[in-house]
Amino acid sequence: MIANYGYKDGAGEFYISIDTDKCLACDADRACLTACPKGMFEIITDDYDDEVAAVKQQFRRSLAYDCTACKPAGGYASLPCSSACTPGAIKHSW
């Protein structure tokens, strides 16, 4: 399942997509949990009883602001969350 967490507003589309099928056999040892400087990810049990990564509820309405520090202007060459997730489950829409 591809879970899109986020929103679209007047400034654009701000979604973090997580391909939860890739979380099932995570060979990155759940690195997303520690890679995000703000700790935005959590592991949840979804409706199909699978343990998968998700964006915490409190961050889903403010991704444009919370993720700003990790974008190129913040000095990062690549996103820490996407880079740490070696199975390639995490993508940003912007």
Partner: peptide, 12 residues
């Protein structure tokens, strides 16, 4: 009837 992909709008 299993979800493959979903998107909502948490803000608007």
């Amino acid at each position: 009837g299993r979800v493959v992909d979903f998107a909502g709008n948490e803000k608007c």
